[in-house]
């Protein structure tokens, strides 16, 4: 008796997951198009692409957060090892553990999987910015990987209260 129920629940979960993946990228997430894929890796390696990038307009130039999704359609995993940006004195990668942020040295981009940075979860932390990014601007960052070549992403600056689920 238990099995069919569990299967149904799992199926539903999978559908839900798939749709979340389709998400609300839509025409609004400008970075997906401008980032391109990393062509540096071999045919059997990781195949990376970046989408759904945004930066909520920060309160000041001292700190900002960035969010994006790195998809890997390749058959090998890769690792995001660092992020650089001309606009910031430092960009660090953080994961949220409970209600505190922990800096990490790298994060996996699994084969046929995704590495997701989203509000409340993983995020890029920009510190010591040269100026305060404002809505409508773009912030260029370079993602560095263990295997693939660097990927440049133009992260659009959205409103301070931007919600990717609603797109505004």
């Amino acid at each position: 008796m238990r099995r069919p129920g569990t299967a149904a629940a799992m199926a539903a979960g999978m559908v839900f997951g798939a749709l979340t993946l389709a998400g609300c990228g839509g025409p609004d997430s400008g970075a997906s198009g401008s980032s391109g894929t990393s062509g540096a890796s071999g045919s059997s390696g990781a195949e990376l692409s970046v989408s759904s990038a945004y930066m909520p307009q920060p309160v000041s130039a001292s700190m900002a957060a960035g969010f994006l999704t790195i998809a890997n359609t390749g058959g090998a995993k890769d690792e995001l090892t660092s992020v650089t940006s001309d606009i910031a004195g430092s960009v660090t990668v953080h994961e949220t553990v409970g209600t505190s942020m922990q800096e990490v040295t790298s994060l996996d981009v699994p084969a046929h999987g995704r590495l997701v940075f989203e509000s409340g979860g993983n995020h890029l932390m920009f510190e010591k910015l040269k100026h305060r990014p404002t809505q409508g601007q773009k912030v260029a960052v370079v993602l560095h990987f263990a295997e693939s070549g660097p990927v440049t992403v133009e992260i659009p600056v959205k409103s301070a209260t931007y919600n990717p689920k609603t797109g505004h």
Binding site: V59, M63, A64, M101, S119, F126, A160, T161
Partner: peptide, 15 residues
Amino acid sequence: NCPDICPLTMNNLAV
């Protein structure tokens, strides 16, 4: 010194 949730929460309230 909180890049994500704190400013988001406060801005949500302010807006």
